[in-house]
Write a protein that binds this DNA or RNA. Sequence first.
DNA 1: CTGAAATGTAACCGTAGTAGTTACAACAAA
DNA 2: TTTGTTGTAACTACTACGGTTACATTTCAG
Lengths: 154, 154
Amino acid sequence: TNRLNVTKIVTQMPASTRFAVAVHILTLLALQDEALTSDYIAGSVSTNPVVVRRILGALKQAGLVTAAHGPRGGFTLAVAAREINLRAVYEAVEERNVIAIHGNPNPQCPVGRTIENILGGVTNRAEEAMLRDLAATSLAKLVGQVQRRNAGAC
Amino acid sequence: TNRLNVTKIVTQMPASTRFAVAVHILTLLALQDEALTSDYIAGSVSTNPVVVRRILGALKQAGLVTAAHGPRGGFTLAVAAREINLRAVYEAVEERNVIAIHGNPNPQCPVGRTIENILGGVTNRAEEAMLRDLAATSLAKLVGQVQRRNAGAC
DNA sequence: CTGAAATGTAACCGTAGTAGTTACAACAAA
DNA sequence: TTTGTTGTAACTACTACGGTTACATTTCAG
């Protein structure tokens, strides 16, 4: 197969890079007409094909890509790049709230009793602001930026 | 000392709860005239005094609180609650970017070569949107909300 | 000046999320 | 039927996190 050369390095964690990888993958798919295999994609992202398939699994569940088994199989965008916004991508692959609330404050304390609820409102609004911002950028826009900085295919 | 009764439970992780705890602590300080000890505060938050001191250390570095050693010591707001906004609190205690970028994409690929840079812009803007939202809420506002749902001190 | 009470920190632990990896079942095309 | 692919389960190493112990440092009170 036509897997790209990969040079291994790295470790760093935890803080999910799934969103970044998902956007990377979708950008590749948007630039290619044919279906791309997880093996090929892994070469561009510099990771393991299984990691790619895991993320593509989430994107598939969200209806953003389709998968085909067998020879000449692989992944394809299910929706035009212009119709995909980064909020949808984020929500497809990231589970946890960006801002966490602490558990079990002391209910005997007026602050402990109420702070979780009040903080929940604050953090939800802040997170919503972030997602609204992501929603304003389409995959097509990113693809355009990549193309503007390059010429040629992968 | 006058430590509150604590009932232990819980475990859950990783995803920092420092912001939530910091806001909780600052709310306590804003409601009290006297200096509060880390031991007392730990009782309301339901955690260990060292955890409280760690977070208060960050808040102190940010100029939001002052600390006093020795008997009758403890922590006090260094700034009026109306002057403290939640963005300042967040930035004082949280280090990592809310959205991570993946490392080492393949530089031989047009996408791999450029995606980190482009994604960096996207995530910075999204994060900035979140922080702008947090900046719009003051500690005094939260304190007001707590008071509205309670009567009495801790 | 001594003792008690507090902060400040270093060091260590258990837990849990993340990516990386191997292995293999399921499936589809040629 | 063979080959190339997705789909998943299982396991690993790494790391951030909160919890905990321990103790040096500082400060107030008497």
